[in-house]
Amino acid sequence: MHRRKLASILAAATVAAGTALTLVTHAGAAAGATAALSNNWYASAPYLMPQSNNPPDPAAVMAATGQKAFQLAFILAPDGGGCSPTWDGTSAVSADTTVAGVIGKIRGAGGDVSVSVGGYGGTKLGQTCSGASGTAAAYQQVIDKYGLHAIDFDLEEPEYENDAAIGNELGAAQILQRDNPGLFVSVTMPGTSAGTGWFGTQLLDKSKSLGFTPDNFSIMPFDGGFDGASSQTSALEAFHSLLMSHLGWDSAAAYAHEGFSGMNGKSDAAEYFYQADFQTVLDYATSHHLGRFTFWPVNRDRACTTTTDNGVCSNVSQSDWDFTKFTAKFAGATPPTTTTTTTTPAGSCAVAAWSATTAYNGGAVVSYDGHAWTAKWWTYGDIPGGGAGVWIDNGAC
C-alpha cells in the first residue's frame, strides 16, 4: 500500500531510555505542550512528513486552508535495531529538536499535531520491542516528549502480516489509551475492494479479542486497483460491513468508528484521484457520519513544476493545498477563499475556454485553469483534469 518515501535528512542519534509517564502528569512539562483541540481536528489531520520530501511551512498551509492539525509521520524502530522511538528510523526522538520546532510552529499558529507510528517500509517498534508493554513504553516516550493528545497506528506491510507484531501494536495502543485519558487513537490499514484484506480482518478480530476500541479504524483505498471516488466509496461501504460482522457493531456505530485515508493526485500505482473525487468521498463521509477523513500527504499537495517526483507534488492540475481544504471541511471549517492573479503571455491560451455546456469531439483543444487541454474522445460536461480522464493536459499556457 503506501509506497512512502522515507528519505530522512537527519543523522541517527543515540536514544536515552525514558520512563513512561501518563499524559495527564507529564504533558504540562513537555516543550510546547498545549491544550487539546476538539477531536474533529485530529480526525481530519492530513499526513505530513516533517523532515523529508520537501516539507512545506505548516503555518502557511494552515492560513491558506483553515486546517488546524497535522498527522506527523513516521515513528519507527532504529535502523540499527532496538526498542527506542526514532523519526524515520534514523533520528532519535529523545534528542530531537527539528520536529519539536515544527510542532511548536503549528501550536503557535493555534493548531496541534497527532503523530503516526509505522507506515510502509522500515522496521516498526512492534517488531522489535518485547511485548505490548515494551512497545507502549517506547511510544509513551513520544507522547511525553511532545505532549501529544493524539496518536495514529498506521499498520502496514511487512508488520501487517506478523501476528505477534500486530498484537504488540494493538496491545500498546490499548495501554496508551488507558494510561493517557482523552488520547485520540486511530488505527489505519490497507484497503481493498472488499474493504480490507485477510490480514485486515485478522487485525479487527485481534482488536475484539483484546477488548480494544480505538476512535476509528481507517482504510487506505488506493494502490490496489482503485479508479476514482466510486471505487473508494464502494470499499468504504464494504469495510462498514466488515466492522459490523467482525466487531458486532450496529450500522451507526460502525460508521462512527470508520475512517478514510486517501492519496491525492497520482498514486504510487498510477491511479489518479482528483479534487472531484475527494469531494465525492467527503460527501459520503459526512452523510454517513464517518469518524475520520484524511489523506497522504500534505508534502505533495501542490502541482508539479520543476519536477514530477511523486513524493513532493501531485502530478495533477491543482493549486497549492487544494486537497488539504477537504480535510478542513470535514473538521467543520470553511477554508479561506484565495484569489490567484496570473499574467498570460501574449498569444498563449489563445484557444477558447472549456464550457460545461459544449460537446467536444476528440482532438478539440480548450483552456481551463491556466492550462491547455486536448480531448481524447467525444465528451460533454467532463471537467479537464477530472476523474473521467478525458482530457490530456498540454501544460500551462
Rank of each mutant, 00 (worst) to 15 (best):
S231V: 11
F217K: 03
V185W: 01
P181K: 06
S207F: 00
G211N: 09
Q141I: 12
M189Y: 08
V187D: 00
G171Q: 07
G182N: 06
D227M: 13
A164Y: 08
Y146E: 10
L155M: 14
I143Q: 01
L210M: 14
K145R: 03
L170C: 02
T201Y: 13
L170E: 04
D227T: 15
G224S: 12
E161M: 06
E169R: 06
A165F: 03
G224R: 00
L204P: 02
T233L: 14
F212P: 02
L210S: 09
I166G: 02
T192P: 11
E157T: 15
L204G: 02
G171F: 00
A173I: 08
T196H: 12
D205L: 13
D144L: 03
F184N: 00
Y160W: 05
Y146I: 09
L155E: 07
E169K: 04
I175Q: 13
S230W: 01
V187A: 04
A229D: 06
H149E: 13
I151Q: 01
G195K: 02
S231C: 10
T201W: 08
V142Y: 00
F184E: 03
L155T: 05
L203K: 09
I175S: 12
A172Y: 00
P190M: 04
A172Q: 05
A172T: 09
G211L: 14
K145Q: 04
Q232N: 02
L204Q: 01
S231I: 12
T188R: 05
